[in-house]
């Protein structure tokens, strides 16, 4: 039995998937100033995406990650969990997740200590899959 199979049967606390449309994110990123975008993204995410060769794609991956993680909590984005409390780190093809504030508290309360995430990109869409372990 592989590690992932074992995790699937024993340890997965939540699963979230999100599909996001890159042109929609392009409109947001080009239409709003940095201060406004910080409602969605952390400063680190904005800096990383803006310095990327594919900024709009990477902003879309970050946003879809937030939605996928929020769904893995079983609630989606709520008044308790804000978008910028879920931070996505995208380095080359590796996607990692860092939680802040209330999202971090809720994860600990749910005994979630690890997130595994993967992303796919095709045409003008991004799909992110997040597992809470």
């Amino acid at each position: 039995m592989s590690l992932d199979t074992k995790l699937a049967s024993d340890e997965i606390k939540g699963l979230g998937i999100d599909l996001a449309y890159i042109p929609w994110m392009t409109k947001l990123v080009e239409g709003y100033d940095r201060e406004t975008l910080k409602l969605l993204f952390t400063a680190k995410e904005i800096d990383c995406c803006q310095s990327s060769s594919y900024p709009h794609r990477d902003f879309t991956v970050c946003f879809a990650t937030k939605e996928a993680v929020a769904k893995a909590f079983g609630t989606g984005i709520t008044e308790d969990i804000e978008w910028n409390q879920i931070e996505a780190h995208l380095t080359q093809d590796k996607l990692t997740i860092c939680l802040h504030g209330r999202a971090n508290v809720l994860a600990k309360r749910a005994t979630i200590y690890l997130w595994k995430a993967r992303w796919w990109h095709w045409d003008e869409h991004v799909l992110v899959h997040a597992l809470a372990i």
């Binding site: 929609w24 409602l39 709520t78």
Partner: peptide
């Protein structure tokens, strides 16, 4: 959810306020 995002960002950009609309 994408339209809720646009309302939240629109209120922030136009009025400078953060309004939470994400609840159930």
């Amino acid at each position: 959810s994408t339209e809720i995002v646009e309302i939240v960002l629109g209120l922030k950009q136009n009025l400078g306020i953060k309004v939470k609309l994400g609840g159930r």
